[in-house]
Structure formats: structure tokens, C-alpha cells
Design a protein around this nucleic acid. Structure first.
Length: 461
RNA sequence: GCACCCAUCGUCUAGCCCGGCCUAGGACACUGCCUUUUCACGGCGGUAACUGGGGUUCGAAUCCCCAUGGGUGUACCA
């Protein structure tokens, strides 16, 4: 039997980090078992629907380099089939029409609340022979079991039992004829041949309800795996106030997709002491037994560490291209030679930064143009004595006939010696003059990369 | 409120299912030293946890119960 998982996001306008994690796990599980992952857009909410929102999800997935099998299915487009099944269920005696008004339901809901019951609908139309009220469009409700225990077998959570009293005869077809989510998911998953449902734990309670539909249709219940949720650093639901929550934000900060995958994988899943896990290894190792049961907090520090690791491994040209995008995104004016400089300096730059936005910041010496504005610390280094030293360096550099790292270094060191100061006393003013800051990559390298003419011009300014 | 789930360093986790090998391991973060033209990187160290209380047992992080804390769900949303 081929294993079929699914990725069913609802188009909200961006791709949440939790959605990405679920997608990754579905993808890894399918890959591990040489199965397939289907892609379905849960676009039944027409009010919120937009093509741009769908694109955001697709782009997010593509950026993460997660692929899927077959066409993208629109849940909305499957509406007629959902309706058909709803009526089929009525025909089979597994569902029925309910003519309750919103007011009636509100009364039931209130009394359920005061009595501390979870289910509230009193099933008054379940086996009613009464004449339906005129002019009322009914909903269709499923017949939930009246007593006993309902059991969900979950690959992560284990066997979970629920008393049938907790279950309502929930609505599967609204009065306007639009199917509900509960019905649509089951029908789509069945029609798409989904064998394994891997999703967030927030869906767990739905599972009991969805199984009622599976049973009523006599369909095979899929294997379930409910993943613990990803929380914010403070343990509360991950939201915007914690910082970036969408994958595109991480992309734009210059995180690498392979790093994102590795980090997300390690939330709620482990393989012994392994931390750095390539996608190939992940596919080989991924299975349900490595998934933990408790929710995990999103930790930006660890993501940074993982990203820094993958940046060191990444191809220089690729990093230059990505950095240029980020530089453009930042809106800073930059030197026309930036790309060339970055390529020469990338070996060093990529070992220093946690992400590409930080890399660009660190690499300012390679892109700044015009007058350099110094920060406070730089200014302190660029005092009268500093200025004098920088002037001396400029004069010395001017006379060099060979402009390489070794010669530049020797030149600077001999100036320090003749001045009777430590090398730092020479380099810091120069750094201030060249970068406007007190931290930068190795100046010897940078000076070589920029070239004699450019460096002298900058010192002049 | 009710229902379900979870509970090891600040964080991610190993160990738990099949009690002794656990004076609880790894990683991030933090921190000390080394390296160093700055800031980083890197190398070598350090601090730091079994939520509490009852059982069961010769023995419990590991099994059971209760408490507490946290999460999720409770729609004619998805």
C-alpha cells in the first residue's frame, strides 16, 4: 500500500511557521516511506479567499524546497461532492435534517453551559416525526453515538478515549447548502486516498467527530498523528508579538531554507543527540517514534545557530545572490561594485553572520557609498591622534606597488611599531574611517578587496 | 465551566514504554580562559533540570494516584 499524506493549509495570506512544520513532517513521512504527499487548499471560506493568499502558501512551500504530488486540489471546488455525501448520509439514516433556529440553539447552549456539559444540542430533530416548520431551511446533522466510548488511535498521543456524551450531532451541511469543514475534510481525504493524517494537535478533538463520518460512510479511517503545537518563547500561543511568525519573514531576514527545515524538524522530534541533520538524513530517520508529546517553544537563538551553521556550508555565489536581494530589499544605496566585493569576501563573511541580513550589516564596508557617518564608538576612536595615524597609513598605502593582504598587514604593523603603539591603536581609527563602526571583518582583507584606488579615495573623504 | 492532552537544565531534547548502567547525557543560550587589528568564528572549560505530595518496590526521572502548572478544543470558522 502506498502511503499518502496531505498538506491542507487554509489560505490566510501568509504561511505560518506551524503550517510549515506540519508540511515538513508530512513531506518527510511520505518521502521516508516512498509515498506521496498531496496538496489541498482549504479555501471554503469565500470571504477570506484570494489568489494572493494561495500564492503565499505555494511560494512558502517552494522556498522550503518541499514538493508535492499531483495537482493542487481546491476544497471549494469539491463542494458538490461534499453535498452529495451529506445527502447520502441522510439516505443511509446516519444523518438528518434539523430545523432549529439560532435562538433555539442559543437557549440550548446556555443551559448546557450552566449544567457544565460540553455538548448542547438536544437532538430534538434526530428521530422526529414532526412536520418541519414552513419556510425554514434545514441544516443536516450527523448522528453521533449516544453512549459508550469513542476511541482515537493516534501514533503520537496513543489511544485516547472520549465519552460519547461529549459529542454532539454536529452540522455537516449548513442551511445555505454549504458543507462544513468537518465533512469536507473527511470526504476530501477519502477521495484523495489519504492514508495518514499528520496535523497539529489543535485538531485532535475534531478527530472524534471526523471518525463518526468515516464510520457512517463505512470508509477506512486513516492513521492519525497529531503533532504537539509550537508555542512562542514565553509558552503562549505563537503570535506576532513574539516576532516573525511566517516563513516569508524568515526568508526576508536571510535564513536559509535548509536551516529552517533542520530547525523545525528538531521541534518536537529528535533522533538521539543529533542536532545538525541534513534533509537526506531526515528522510532516512524520520518516523513517528521520534515525535515527542509536549509542545515546544520557538527559540530564535537556536534557529540562528543552525542557520549560521548552514551558511558556512553554503555556496558563495548563492549567498552573494541572496545577500544582494536583501540589500535591495533594505533600500540602502549601495556601491556598483558591491556584488564583486561580496564574492571576494564571502568566505570570511559567511563565517561571521547568523543570517544574511546580519551579513549585509557586517559587510557594510563593501557596499557603503558617499560620506560615511560614524557611530559614537567609532567617533571616539577617530580623535585627533586617530586622524593623524589614518593619514600616515594613507601615505604608506599610496606608495605600495604590490597591494595584497601580506603587504598591507606589514605596512600597518610597521606604522604601529614606528609610532610605538599597539596594532589596535592603528587599526581602530582606520576601521572607523572606512566603516563608520568599531566592528568589521578583517581590514587587511577588506583593503585588498577594495583595491588601492578605492581605499585611498575613501580615506580622503 | 466542561472535555482532552502534556510536564527532565532558561530553551530544544536524550533517558521513561521493558524500574538499578543516571553522582541525569547532548545542543542552544549564558559564562570563564585561549586565539585575535575590532566584532565575530573557532578551541578548551563552567553554571544550570527530573513541578509538588503520596504510594508500589530492596531500589523510581522511569510504574500508580492526587495536586499544581501549561496547552488545546468547546461555531451554520477552518
Amino acid at each position: 500500500m502506498t502511503i499518502v499524506t496531505r498538506f491542507p493549509p487554509s489560505p490566510t495570506g501568509f504561511m505560518h511557521i506551524g503550517t510549515a512544520r506540519t508540511g515538513l513532517f508530512n513531506w518527510l513521512y511520505a518521502k521516508h516511506h516512498k509515498g506521496k504527499m498531496r496538496f489541498r487548499i482549504e479555501d471554503t471560506d469565500r470571504a477570506r479567499h484570494s489568489e494572493a493568499a494561495v500564492d503565499a502558501i505555494i511560494n512558502g512551500l517552494k522556498w522550503l524546497e518541499i514538493d508535492w504530488d499531483g495537482e493542487i486540489i481546491s476544497q471549494y471546488a469539491c463542494g458538490p461532492r461534499h453535498t452529495e455525501i451529506a445527502h447520502e448520509l441522510v439516505k443511509r439514516g446516519e444523518a438528518y435534517y434539523c430545523y432549529c433556529s439560532p435562538e433555539e440553539l442559543e437557549v440550548m447552549r446556555e443551559s448546557a453551559k450552566t449544567e457544565g456539559r460540553l455538548s448542547f444540542y438536544d437532538r430534538r430533530w434526530r428521530d422526529s416525526k414532526a412536520t418541519p416548520p414552513a419556510g425554514v431551511k434545514p441544516v443536516i446533522r450527523i448522528k453521533a453515538p449516544l453512549s459508550g466510548e469513542v476511541i482515537v488511535n493516534d501514533k503520537v498521543q496513543g489511544e485516547v478515549k472520549l465519552n460519547a456524551e461529549q459529542l454532539d450531532d454536529f452540522i455537516i451541511l449548513r442551511s445555505d447548502g454549504v458543507p462544513t469543514y468537518m465533512l469536507a475534510v473527511v470526504v476530501d481525504d477519502h477521495d484523495m486516498g489519504v492514508t495518514h493524517v499528520i496535523r497539529g494537535d489543535d485538531h485532535f478533538n475534531n478527530t472524534f467527530r471526523q471518525n463518526i463520518i468515516y464510520k457512517a460512510m463505512n470508509w477506512t479511517i486513516p492513521v492519525y498523528a497529531h503533532l504537539p503545537l509550537i508555542l512562542g518563547p514565553d509558552g503562549a500561543k505563537l503570535s506576532k508579538r513574539h516576532g516573525a511568525t511566517s516563513v516569508e519573514e524568515y526568508r526576508d531576514m536571510g535564513y536559509l531554507p535548509e536551516a529552517m527545515r533542520n530547525y523545525l524538524l528538531r521541534l518536537c522530534w529528535s533522533h538521539g543527540d543529533d542536532e545538525i541533520i541534513s534533509t537526506e538524513q531526515a528522510i532516512e530517520w524520520f518516523d513517528f517514534d521520534g515525535i515527542g508529546k509536549s509542545p515546544a517553544r520557538f527559540d530564535f537563538d537556536k534557529l540562528n545557530f543552525i542557520n549560521a551553521h548552514y551558511m558556512k556550508l553554503a555556496d558563495n555565489k548563492r549567498l552573494v545572490d541572496l545577500s544582494m536581494n536583501i540589500l535591495k530589499l533594505s533600500g540602502h544605496p549601495y556601491s556598483p561594485n558591491t556584488e564583486k566585493y561580496l564574492l571576494s569576501a564571502m568566505d570570511e563573511l559567511k563565517t561571521r553572520a547568523k543570517n544574511l541580513a546580519a551579513l549585509i550589516e557586517d559587510a557594510r564596508i563593501y557596499w557603503i557609498t558617499g560620506e560615511i557617518s560614524m557611530d559614537e564608538k567609532a567617533l571616539a576612536n577617530y580623535d585627533e591622534a586617530g586622524k593623524a595615524i589614518v593619514k600616515k597609513i594613507a601615505e604608506a598605502l599610496k606608495t605600495l606597488t604590490s597591494f595584497d593582504v601580506a603587504t598591507i598587514e606589514t605596512t600597518c604593523k610597521s606604522i604601529a611599531e614606528s609610532e610605538g603603539v599597539k596594532l589596535g591603536k592603528v587599526m581602530m581609527p582606520l576601521r572607523a574611517a572606512l566603516t563608520g563602526s568599531t566592528s568589521s571583518p578583517s581590514l587587511f582583507h577588506a583593503i585588498e578587496i577594495l583595491g588601492q584606488e578605492e581605499v585611498l579615495k575613501r580615506i580622503q573623504n
